[in-house]
Simulated scan of single mutants.
Amino acid sequence: MSLLDEQSAVTVLGLGPMGRALAGAFLDAGLRTTVWNRTPGRDRELVERGAIGARSAREAVAASDLTVVCVVNYDAADAVLRRDAVTDALKGRTVVNLTADTPDRARDTAVWAAEHGVRYLDGAIMTPTTTIGTPAAVFILSGPEELHREHRPVLDALGGTLTHLGEEIGRAAAYDIALLDIFWTAMAGYAHALAVARAEGITARELAPFAQGIGAIMPPLFGELAEGVDSGDFSGEGNPITSSASSMAHIIHTSEAHGIDAGVMRAAEGLARRVIGLGHGTDGFIRVAEVLGRR
């Protein structure tokens, strides 16, 4: 029996750590799963667990009505999907692209898919590989609602929460970018804090429990501040942006006294001073979001 004699429930293209986790979750759910990776050999463990190793990308996508793509970026995805043989095999089938990239790239891929008769959903994975197949996994999708409904039973095998954010195809990537903005800005702040603390004789382990306390303040603030931003209420009652700018200046002074680059904090202070200069000194720091968005 050849690979194409019996259809798989799903094909996974890309077998890096996340792609292997996705394929593994499908297998654990008992789904017939076809896998392919540009670098040979990555499928060995999955094949031993029951996956079907395709000999080519074309063979892989032809094996299933649903193909899930998870590669490093859209350049890599395009290099696989936009080859004539693969594109022809995808006609009438569905691609769910869980590759991280920009909203514009998602929209461009959707145009390509429509032009070639490929049904397309774009998405993002918001949690680490260790969560895939568990209740802690978080996925977001955007694109045609009927495609989401049709393939939801298979995608549910990935575990956790899968949220369809709407039909505008770039919406999932936009959420991904915004949420990663929070994560990497916070990580940059933590790395800087560790450098300053070490310069003052405080170890990372000593600082960590207090850092966790600061982090715990943030989640409720996100909800409270979001309501104000959407309603145009940037009130700084209790903590005006003038106070924020003052504390930022202290951080900059201490950092630079130790020869530590304070460029990120200088940028943040500059935004705060800009808000103050526009006459919003009694507002809270979140007024920066409105100023940044001005055209």
Score class of each variant (00 low, 15 high):
residue 242 T to W: 06
residue 150 E to V: 07
residue 35 V to K: 01
residue 262 A to R: 11
residue 74 Y to R: 11
residue 109 T to P: 03
residue 260 I to G: 13
residue 46 L to S: 00
residue 197 A to Q: 10
residue 195 A to F: 07
residue 61 V to R: 06
residue 85 A to C: 11
residue 258 H to A: 14
residue 222 F to W: 14
residue 215 G to V: 13
residue 279 G to K: 04
residue 239 N to S: 15
residue 177 I to S: 07
residue 4 L to H: 07
residue 288 V to I: 07
residue 187 M to Q: 14
residue 57 A to L: 01
residue 180 L to A: 13
residue 175 Y to R: 08
residue 280 H to P: 06
residue 21 A to T: 02
residue 103 P to A: 08
residue 133 G to Q: 05
residue 272 A to W: 00
residue 254 T to C: 07
residue 135 P to T: 00
residue 186 A to P: 11
residue 106 A to C: 05
residue 96 V to G: 13
residue 21 A to W: 02
residue 156 D to P: 10
residue 273 R to A: 04
residue 195 A to G: 07
residue 215 G to R: 12
residue 290 E to C: 03
residue 235 S to I: 06
residue 275 V to C: 10
residue 176 D to E: 10
residue 253 H to D: 09
residue 283 D to V: 01
residue 131 T to N: 03
residue 207 L to V: 10
residue 174 A to Q: 04
residue 134 T to M: 02
residue 10 V to Y: 04
residue 104 D to S: 09
residue 274 R to V: 00
residue 56 S to F: 06
residue 104 D to V: 03
residue 137 A to K: 02
residue 65 D to I: 10
residue 57 A to G: 13
residue 197 A to Y: 14
residue 78 D to I: 07
residue 241 I to A: 06
residue 148 H to R: 11
residue 250 H to Y: 15
residue 138 V to E: 05
residue 252 I to L: 14
residue 272 A to F: 05
residue 176 D to I: 11
residue 196 V to A: 09
residue 67 T to W: 04
residue 89 A to G: 14
residue 249 A to V: 09
residue 222 F to M: 15
residue 170 G to N: 07
residue 223 G to M: 14
residue 235 S to T: 09
residue 98 L to K: 10
residue 114 A to L: 03
residue 218 M to L: 15
residue 294 R to G: 00
residue 280 H to L: 05
residue 266 R to L: 02
residue 169 I to V: 15
residue 205 R to V: 10
residue 230 D to G: 00
residue 133 G to M: 03
residue 205 R to I: 13
residue 275 V to Y: 04
residue 110 A to N: 09
residue 219 P to K: 14
residue 171 R to D: 00
residue 17 P to H: 12
residue 128 P to T: 05
residue 233 D to H: 15
residue 117 G to F: 11
residue 169 I to T: 14
residue 220 P to I: 09
residue 9 A to P: 08
residue 278 L to V: 02
residue 173 A to R: 10
residue 240 P to V: 05
residue 195 A to I: 12
residue 269 E to N: 12
residue 270 G to L: 00
residue 194 L to W: 09
residue 97 N to V: 08
residue 47 V to T: 08
residue 20 R to L: 01
residue 213 G to N: 13
residue 133 G to F: 01
residue 215 G to P: 14
residue 109 T to I: 09
residue 251 I to C: 09
residue 18 M to G: 02
residue 253 H to P: 00
residue 35 V to H: 00
residue 167 E to L: 02
residue 266 R to M: 04
residue 173 A to P: 01
residue 97 N to L: 04
residue 14 G to T: 13
residue 183 F to R: 15
residue 74 Y to K: 11
residue 295 R to W: 00
residue 66 L to V: 08
residue 209 P to E: 12
residue 135 P to I: 00
residue 56 S to C: 07
residue 34 T to W: 05
residue 7 Q to M: 14
residue 68 V to S: 08
residue 227 E to Y: 07
residue 139 F to P: 04
residue 3 L to P: 01
residue 88 D to K: 13
residue 94 T to C: 14
residue 61 V to T: 11
residue 153 P to A: 15
residue 149 R to F: 08
residue 183 F to L: 15
residue 139 F to D: 03
residue 48 E to H: 03
residue 163 T to N: 05
residue 125 I to V: 14
residue 232 G to N: 08
residue 11 T to S: 10
residue 147 L to P: 06
residue 200 E to N: 13
residue 24 G to M: 02
residue 234 F to K: 02
residue 121 L to E: 05
residue 77 A to R: 15
residue 204 A to E: 11
residue 137 A to C: 05
residue 155 L to S: 13
residue 192 H to Q: 15
